[in-house]
């Protein structure tokens, strides 16, 4: 894996457009979360993880689980770009005759290491994989949403991973500060963030924690490599991101675009 900042920056910009195009073509979707996770995901795939597009089940590949499965259009765009399958499939995302399911399906899509869609399960699956792979030069990466970390199962997993000191497991949290509705519209007195003090929470469970700008490719790259090298247990990389990153329309309305539709006019204006 070689990391080229200029290349990744251009790739990300290009794939942002692909995400918006694919979602709009197929009737709308999770714009916000797909755009917030893209930069960290593309840095992982193109800059750090060992992957084999020509052999999706290569035994020595890094395992990548997008536990926040609703953002999978971002993952699909990256996988297509890497050659796991043809780009033309993206226009059929979530359609009846497509192998691109609305949420990742490992039995249908090349390059998906585990299915997801019911939040909170991916980290546990990652623990199983990491334990199974403990003597191999393979790293398991689980990408979660911050809202997803409200699920109790996540903390069952965080506790157990700490107990077993799984240094070949890294959780990456797309901390975009929103969920679907949550408390964003609440008046004073109630914290709005999906997981307030998220870094402290992971750290208090014994994890190695880094909190970074989730849109700075250099920093993401460094953090991912540091996580891979950390030998004393699991690492959580809290990536502070912007929901809907890259488009003012989405960034300004994270609730509408958690899962929403664009009008034709909005789509045209976005692309100009």
């Amino acid at each position: 894996m070689s990391f080229n900042l200029e290349e990744i920056t251009h790739d990300a910009a290009r794939l942002r457009k692909e995400i918006v195009k694919a979602l709009h073509t197929t009737g709308g979707g999770h714009y916000g979360g797909a755009l917030s996770v893209l930069d960290l995901l593309i840095t992982l795939y193109k800059g750090v993880a060992n992957i084999y597009p020509e052999e999706p089940n290569h035994p020595m590949r890094d395992r990548i689980i997008l536990s926040k499965g609703h953002a999978c259009i971002a993952q699909y765009c990256i996988l297509a770009d890497l050659g796991f399958f043809d780009v033309s499939e993206l226009a059929k995302y979530g359609s009846f005759n497509s192998f691109l399911e609305g949420h990742p399906d490992m039995n249908k899509t090349p390059g998906i290491d585990f299915s997801s869609g019911s939040l909170g399960q991916g980290l546990s699956v990652g623990i199983g994989m990491a334990m199974a792979l403990k003597n191999k030069p393979v790293h398991t990466w689980v990408i979660m949403g911050d809202g997803e970390c409200q699920e109790g199962q996540v903390w069952e997993s965080v506790m157990l991973a700490d107990r077993y000191k799984l240094n070949n497991l890294t959780a990456i949290v797309d901390n975009n500060n929103y969920q679907e509705l949550g408390w964003a519209q609440n008046s004073e007195g109630i914290e709005k963030a999906p997981i307030p003090r998220i870094s402290e929470k992971f750290a208090s469970f014994g994890w190695n924690v880094m909190e970074i700008d989730g849109h700075d490719f250099n920093i993401i790259h460094k953090a991912l490599n540091k996580a891979k090298e950390f030998k004393y247990g699991s690492t959580a990389i809290i990536c502070n991101t912007v929901k809907g990153k890259g488009y003012e329309l989405f960034e300004n309305d994270p609730i509408r675009f958690h899962c929403g539709e664009l009008t034709e006019l909005e789509y045209v204006l976005l692309n100009n």
């Binding site: 490992m106 290491d113 699956v125 994989m129 997993s157 506790m159 107990r163």
Partner: peptide
């Protein structure tokens, strides 16, 4: 033998992770 503690949800999903790596959990 892997003790998972009082965490059935984690345990079942973990088992799935083991299974895709070729184990019979």
């Amino acid at each position: 033998f892997i003790m998972c503690g009082i965490a059935e949800q984690c345990m079942v999903s973990m088992a799935a992770g083991f299974a895709v790596e070729g184990y019979t959990p």
